[in-house]
């Protein structure tokens, strides 16, 4: 759901760039005073990992393929705001090197996938864990949070496209949601398998201090 250049009109992309840029700047200012020296390698490495994991395609119905987004994955491992910075890094490099997502649409893409899809997904996970407490519900909470995060990000993209008068909401919303409902199942499976395995093999990673 990386929106390319030319699909958003000026008011939308300018507004989204200001919103995402402002939030990112505020988060970076907070991280700066915290333990920057200690966390830079792991942030950079996780961003590279998410980028590499997005290369691994899995087939979706009808000959198309989907790939991992990883927003909820890195927010749960690193903490919501560090995860947001990580996703912003991934999206920036995808835009600059890969031309996946446009330069003017970068703000909108960071908002959809970094903020709504990742930080939003993290708090959804917290909410699902509150509903049923205990380790047995971990897989269900991971799966639900990552599937919902994909749907929320797709819905945001559809809203932005209709706000720019590019694609009408009545056409864009069902198309985006139905495509991403299937991709979301893949995302949920990958996120749950990976997080459960990390929790089983190296539980100390899940218990590091997060912010």
């Amino acid at each position: 759901m990386h929106i390319p250049d030319g699909f958003l009109d000026t008011k939308t992309w300018l507004g989204m760039t200001l919103v995402s840029g402002g939030i990112l700047a505020a988060v970076l200012r907070r991280i700066k005073h915290a333990d920057i020296v200690r966390r830079i390698p792991i942030i950079g490495m996780t961003a590279a990992l998410v980028f590499a994991a997005q290369m691994l395609n899995f087939p979706v119905a009808g000959g198309t393929s989907g790939h991992f987004m990883g927003g909820v994955f890195c927010c749960i491992l690193l903490g919501p705001w560090t995860g947001f910075v990580t996703m912003s890094l991934v999206l920036t490099v995808q835009c600059l090197i890969f031309q996946d997502g446009g330069l003017t649409a970068l703000g909108a893409n960071i908002f959809n996938m970094g903020l709504i899809g990742s930080v939003g997904g993290f708090y959804l996970y917290g909410f699902f864990r509150l509903l049923i407490w205990g380790d047995r519900t971990r897989p269900a909470a991971y799966a639900l949070a990552s599937w919902t995060s994909i749907m929320l990000a797709a819905a945001c993209a559809a809203f932005e496209l209709s706000f720019s008068n590019t694609i009408e909401l009545s056409i864009g919303m069902p198309a985006m949601l139905s495509a991403h409902a299937i991709i979301g199942i893949g995302e949920a499976t990958i996120t749950t398998t990976a997080l459960m395995a990390i929790w089983r093999i190296k539980p100390e990673i899940m218990q590091i201090r997060k912010f």
């Binding site: 990958i190 398998t193 990976a194 395995a197 093999i201």
Partner: peptide, 10 residues
């Protein structure tokens, strides 16, 4: 792919 992501992450 989830297992591959795990091994890559660790």
């Amino acid at each position: 792919i989830g297992n591959m992501v795990t091994s890559l992450f660790i």
